[in-house]
Amino acid sequence: MVVLLSACRSSNGAKSDALLMIPIPTRVTVTTGTVPGLGTILTDSTGHSLYMFPPDAGSQVHCTGACAGTWPPLVIQAGHKPRAGGQVNTADLGTLADPNTGADVITYGGYPLYRYASDLTAGVANGQDLFSDGGPWYVLHPNMQPVTVNPAPTITPTPATIPIAPPSLAPPPTLSTGSGS
């Protein structure tokens, strides 16, 4: 169950969550991009990796509440259809009612799509194969299969192998409203 304590009505009459500051555009394009070690995967139109969550199998949205902060759903205003780019098959795109925002969450092969809050630049997938909020998170190949490999070196009991790269201070992803994601 999801809390919608503070809600308002959008122009189409659907309830939206005024507290959860996720923009709800009317135009969203799901396309493909390349991430080193992962190959061609689904991204949004700004090149940010898109993830699936296996517990969502059966066209459900299990990532609600605080989870939606770490894994913001890729949403579109209800009544609008997402567009396909790159190697994305239009027929595999769909939408589900999003219990977080009151809008629709975009699906691919029935799986709701999410971004990862800590992917601050395009072309990275820091959340790949991360166990979080009760399950693993995977990027998606355009053939609808989750990519389950971990691009980072396996962390072995050797201190030098742990990735401690300096923080990237690139600007955060801009989630535009009304002109695609």
Binding site: L19, L20, G65, A66, C67, A68, G69, T70, P72, S132
Partner: peptide, 12 residues
């Protein structure tokens, strides 16, 4: 911490 608390920070 990482699931709930940080999720709240990231969301709200």
């Amino acid at each position: 911490v990482e699931g709930f608390h940080e999720g709240l920070e990231e969301a709200y």
